[in-house]
């Protein structure tokens, strides 16, 4: 079972050489913005995913800084083209110090 918040990733398992394809990635996270007050008037501490990074075989595909204004369950859809088969690595950096990682392989035919 996955540890930490739920991640969902979608990309093709195989792709024709030279084709551009869509990658979708989403993490379930409340993205607490740090500006809300709790029932006692105290501030609810900020807790967000502050960075999302996707790489292919060590090379960065997309690297995003997220701010407190981003809504819960941040979702990214972006396009990529790869020169050969290999592995994508998806990494989310949480304010609580946790780093959540997923990998997905793709074949080029």
């Amino acid at each position: 079972m996955t540890v930490g918040p739920k991640r969902r990733i979608k990309l093709p398992e195989t792709v024709a050489a030279g084709d551009v394809f869509t990658i979708k990635a989403k993490i379930t996270h409340h993205m607490e913005n740090g500006f809300r007050l709790d029932q006692n008037g105290g501030r609810v501490p900020r807790d967000i995913i502050h960075r999302f990074h996707c790489s292919f075989e060590g090379e960065t595909v997309i690297d995003v800084a997220l701010e407190p204004g981003v809504a819960s369950h941040p979702f990214f859809a972006f396009e990529a083209r790869v020169p050969r088969g290999g592995e994508f690595t998806f990494t989310w950096y949480d304010d609580d110090g946790m780093v959540h990682t997923e990998t997905r392989s793709i074949d080029v035919i």
Binding site: R8, K26, F75
Partner: peptide
Amino acid sequence: DWVGPDFG
């Protein structure tokens, strides 16, 4: 597991 239109 809830799958919205984001993921089809």
